[in-house]
Amino acid sequence: MPRSLTQEFTKGLWDEIPPFRLVLGLCPVLAVTKTLENGIGMGVATTFVLVFSNILVSSLRKVIPSKVRIACFILVIATFVIVVELLSQAFTYELYLKLGIFIPLIVVNCIVLGRSEAFAYKFGVFRSLLDGLGIGIGFTLALAALGTLREVIGSGNLTIWGALKFTDLFGPAFQPFQFMIEAPGAFVCLGLMLCGMNLLGKK
């Protein structure tokens, strides 16, 4: 049964939220969610790439021969990733410094290629736009949640674009749980959140 346009958008927010339900694109999820800001920045960059590559792929879907479709997808995705890289260098340089290599690595993020292959190549432009936007926002939310958890436990502070700053959330005697900032902490956090999602979603 075809989904309605609203469902196309909202499925990315819960039913198919990438890191938890599809368990895709884990590399940036684990690597950049040291802080909330990084998580949101990465999410927004990925959303940008998802939306534009979905639009372009779906508008070219009748022209692209199926034998070279993957090459075409990668070409389109890589183009938008470099656009994001250049723009983030020009306008949000501090964030670019923090995300570093993970912006170029969006090219090989299987969520993006997966959406092109599984969705945009088969459906219309507007539907693909909604799909990209939904999945992108879901990805951003997941990264933000993970980033918040790790930043709060790992450093006791929470910063949102320097405007909102919470320091010493657990009082001055709190000893930061540094483990959470490092890579193993990311795995543990992700595992616990996956577990929580499955418990919540259990019928």
Binding site: L60, I64, C72, L75, V76
Partner: peptide, 13 residues
Amino acid sequence: VLTVLSAFSGGLL
């Protein structure tokens, strides 16, 4: 198709 697409992305970038 590949050539046109490459040229387009090259120009855009």
